[in-house]
Amino acid sequence: MTVENFVFQGLIGLSLAMYLWLVSAGLTLAFGVLGVLNFAHGSLYMVGAYLAYTLYGRLGFDFAVSVVLAVLTVGILGAVVERLLFRPMYRLDTAFQLILTFGLVLIFSDLAKLIWGGLFVIPPVPGIFQGTVPVLGRSFPVYNIFVITAGIIVALVMGLVLERTWWGKTVRAAAADREMAAALGLNISKVFVLVFAAAAMLAGLGGAFSIPVRVVDPGTGTALIVQAFIITVIGGLGNLRGAFVGSLLVGVLSAYGTLLFPVFELFIIYLLMAIVLLVKPEGLFGR
């Protein structure tokens, strides 16, 4: 095993991590603020992927335009879901929320089957992602560089908005104590709908970004949501910093697991989760 191969595998792991981060960021944001453990996050990812596929692959829009339109649409869908379905649920037991979001998974999956058919789809590779960059004597995909950049930008923007802006303060106040924040005159229901729309947009972004290299089918998002849950558990439920670090750990470790222990690489992620749960049950960054 040469040093070059080792570093290269780490870069592949980094792009995997940033891709997982895009998905787990929205999941953990929704939980942190709204307190909703949204199983249907993977479905929003799927809708983003299908919309981007339709716009780019079928209707011939530019890839960037398709991604933006898909993300905005999923955001609106998220706002509608929050207003109509989640709002009456906040007062009820968490179990009802779980049943609701799980029901949404089934409904979205069947709707996708009705609209796009049961067969997977994949569009042609957009021109900008064709080709590779030589890295350490090997070929690194332009696409992966793009995903790494997007992940870092999303992390920076989220960090800045939440830490440095009035809006961020409002969101954090609502997350910390929604009744106190409401008593102080903050419009909690507005915060909730916007935060959930933002979380949905992150899911949609993950999905829309995925279509150049992944097939989309009505089950897309199921496997990803499991990984995103592992990441949020490792990082601490509802903690964005935790989700970022958790994504890095899972992405990079699974890439190295594949390289160094090909026979039981899956085991490594679950081992990581087990250790975190034993040592710090609230997650690395959990309170």
Binding site: M1, T2, Q9, L16, A255, T258, L259
Partner: peptide
């Protein structure tokens, strides 16, 4: 010389491909 194993529901094979190409 190399092997990488991907279970059902794998959506990202890049680490498998990179490991085998090494």
């Amino acid at each position: 010389v190399g092997e990488a194993w991907a279970p059902f529901l794998t959506t990202d094979f890049s680490s498998h491909i990179a490991a085998v190409m090494a």
